[in-house]
Amino acid sequence: MGKIEQGILGAFSGTVGTVVGARWRGIRYMRGKGPSTRPTSTVKQDKQRERFLLMVHFVRAMSPIITLGYKKLAVNMTPANAALSYNLKNGVTGTYPDFEIAYDMVLLSRGDLPNASNVAAVAEGGSTVKFTWLNNAGSGKALESDLCMAAAYCEELDLAICSILNPADTRQKQLFNLNVSDFAGRSVETYLTFFSADGKEIANSLYTGNVPLP
């Protein structure tokens, strides 16, 4: 802030708009304000911003499953922020500026409910991903009535398709078909997880691989 020392027509010191008033060897003078030499961001900040934006897009696309999958961990934050915090630390690979999502390290849900065993995902034509697993009810908290939830993420489109929790889609069923017709001809990253019927218990999601769609 500039200071006028001798009234409105007097000399001033400091900065007023784009003009700087100063004194040199007892002489008052004014000069134009030079450009800022402070860098807009550091390399470290650029790296963090790129990692952040990459994961934000993924978490946003997966929000239907993440909203349920992180609800127990969302203490003083949203489920999306809880998922973002975990996956920024564990789900990004590569070096700046070529960061990538480590799909096999990402967790869309987190909890201590056992997931299914021998999980697999394969394409059924260009419109469906078929998930299969072995019924491991009785292992820990796992029950036959636990509900499955599946997701497929298309990196090319930065879009995801997530199933909804349906009372018919239980652990006991050992099969779930996800309609991915919007992604036909592309490949998708696939995930499966389980929730107890009352929604109180949650499993860590499982990455079921990249599935090319014909």
Rank of each mutant, 00 (worst) to 15 (best):
M1N: 08
K3I: 15
K3V: 15
Q6M: 02
I8F: 04
I8W: 02
A11H: 02
A11Q: 01
F12H: 01
V19C: 03
V19E: 02
V20Q: 06
V20C: 00
G21V: 00
A22Q: 06
R25T: 01
G26F: 06
R28G: 14
R31Y: 05
G32I: 03
K44R: 07
D46S: 06
Q48Y: 04
R49I: 06
R51S: 11
L53F: 07
L54T: 10
V56N: 12
V56D: 12
F58H: 08
P64N: 10
I65E: 08
Y70A: 07
K72T: 15
N76D: 15
N76C: 08
N76P: 10
M77H: 04
M77Y: 08
T78N: 05
N81H: 11
A82G: 06
S85L: 15
N87Q: 14
N87L: 12
L88W: 14
N90S: 11
G91F: 05
G91L: 13
T93V: 15
P97T: 10
I101C: 07
I101V: 14
D104W: 12
V106D: 05
V106H: 09
R110Q: 07
R110W: 00
L113F: 07
A116R: 10
S117I: 13
A120G: 12
A121C: 13
V122H: 14
V122R: 14
E124M: 13
E124P: 00
E124V: 14
G125M: 09
G125C: 12
G126E: 13
T128E: 11
K130V: 15
T132P: 11
L134M: 13
N136Q: 03
A137K: 09
K141Y: 13
K141Q: 10
S145L: 10
S145I: 01
C148L: 11
A150L: 07
Y153S: 00
Y153E: 04
C154K: 03
E155C: 08
L157I: 14
D158K: 07
P167E: 09
A168F: 12
D169L: 11
D169Y: 08
T170Q: 11
R171D: 04
R171N: 04
Q172C: 06
K173C: 02
K173M: 11
L175S: 13
L175E: 13
N177C: 05
N179C: 04
N179T: 11
N179W: 06
D182H: 00
D182E: 06
S187N: 04
S187V: 01
S187F: 05
V188E: 05
T190A: 05
T190I: 06
Y191A: 00
Y191E: 04
T193Y: 07
T193W: 06
S196P: 03
S196D: 09
A197P: 01
D198M: 08
D198Q: 09
G199L: 10
N204A: 07
N204L: 09
N204E: 12
S205W: 09
S205N: 04
S205G: 10
Y207C: 03
G209Q: 01
V211E: 02
V211A: 08
V211C: 08
P212F: 06
L213R: 00
L213Q: 03
